[in-house]
Design a protein around this nucleic acid. Structure first.
Lengths: 239, 239
DNA sequence: CGAACACTTGAACCTAATCAATGAGTGTGG
DNA sequence: CCACACTCATTGATTAGGTTCAAGTGTTCG
């Protein structure tokens, strides 16, 4: 009923969709709806920012549409992509919980939309909904473990291994299965992939040229197709 | 009084020391003492393991003496050091909270000792002590931000920059100020530093040779001395 | 005193970055 | 619908940065 009074809550997906968000696992629909009452939404066009590194953390987000990348761009340095954020994933909460401001920027890869809470509301929500606090702990713990895997890859693997592993990871996250084929299609350009594994688009192009002959990968302007079985053989190869 | 009955709790540092642990900020001494009742301690000699990657997460730890490194050693791959753990720092809790087992191994760099809780006790503690849950959220949020900085360094910086940055970081964490000098001494060998920045001891040695002439650094068997002011000029240098 | 280990240095090799030039795909405006 | 501009992808030539392997030196410890 409060829908009529607060139009920003009338997001079409509503509480049902949100239960796919890891923060709301095992949280009752009524409680999710209660939490939703404190939100608005924000739309950001391709290339726009939800926040920038250095900003004070005044808000937290859950992406509901589009794609966001967490980047860090120092002047005179290569760009690094730290993480891709997909629909139903929270972002921006590390700074709100840590209290030292954002250390990364959140940039939209495409037209996208996110739910927005005030950072102060977040703390309040967690104290009044222990299951959400619990889910946050689990989410952050899993992300830390994921980052360890990534750091270890950067420390020990060859570039070719890293590209292969990154594509398999991204394939499972942002990929779509092709029809009647084990192939997986990704919307991803060479530049972003390069920034994700720490190399240049040139080198990505060279690696792809080699792989294309073996039907491990195919790619064009802004898209990549991988054959996971064959690509997996390159994870652990000596490079 | 329960000290007499549970000798493993009679750790000399006791509750007072533990309040320096980030998990126990703003937690009353009585509550810390209560939490301590569920612990034992474990000593591990140099090179020994608290847990190994792949193990189920049955315990969580707070280091009270010595130094521990989180490593990941795949056969046939270079070793990577993911994090150094110092006294009063918790470790092993990511797996306990995430529920998918340890993805890293915890190896003692030197003779060390840690408080041990059962993983199940951890969840119980957090629900009955909300401030501890709150502190955990903050701790993990800060660690995620720290890992972003590290990943960004690995993605975008030259090796020399990474070594400089790593030494400044480690200096502030495991360093001791030299007497009557701005220099900082670290107990750290070339191999561990190499595994931390993703290179080989050879290259570390070469970088140090260059820096030694400018009195940026000095090093010997198992130790490093840095002059932070001069070293800081190498962070952001072009390589 | 001897053995094991950690560090140093040199030389050869190799990976990936850089720079330059070209080609292909996309969007815009006439 | 075409021409143009722009961005993204490819390829080649060159160079720089790091790894690898081998040999030698210095330390620590039993």
């Amino acid at each position: 009923m409060s829908y009529a009074l607060r139009p920003e809550v009338a997001w079409h997906g509503g509480a049902q969709q949100l239960r796919r968000c890891p923060l709301f696992h095992n949280v009752g629909a009524a409680q999710v709806r209660a939490v939703l009452r404190n939100t608005g939404t924000r739309c950001v066009g391709r290339g726009g920012f939800y926040f920038r590194q250095g900003d004070r953390a005044t808000e937290v987000y859950v992406l509901i549409r589009g794609r966001v990348k967490l980047v860090r761009c120092r002047p005179e340095a290569r760009r690094g992509i730290l993480q891709f954020i997909l629909p139903m994933e929270p972002f921006g909460y590390e700074a709100a919980l840590g209290g030292a401001g954002h250390v990364v920027s959140a940039q939209a890869s495409e037209e996208s939309e996110a739910l927005v809470w005030h950072a102060t509301a977040l703390v309040h929500i967690m104290t009044s909904h222990p299951m959400i606090a619990r889910n946050s702990l689990r989410l952050m713990a899993e992300r830390i473990q994921g980052k360890w895997e990534r750091i270890n890859g950067l420390l020990t693997e060859s570039l070719e291994q890293r590209v292969a592993r990154a594509l398999l990871l991204l394939g499972s996250r942002i990929g779509r299965r092709a029809e009647r084929s084990p192939a997986i299609e990704l919307t991803l350009n060479h530049q972003d992939l390069a920034a994700f594994v720490g190399t240049t688009p040139f080198t990505i192009s060279r690696i792809f040229s080699g792989w294309r002959r073996h039907r491990i990968v195919d790619a064009g302007r802004g898209w990549v197709v991988i054959w996971p079985r064959r690509l997996a053989t390159r994870v652990g190869a000596h490079g």
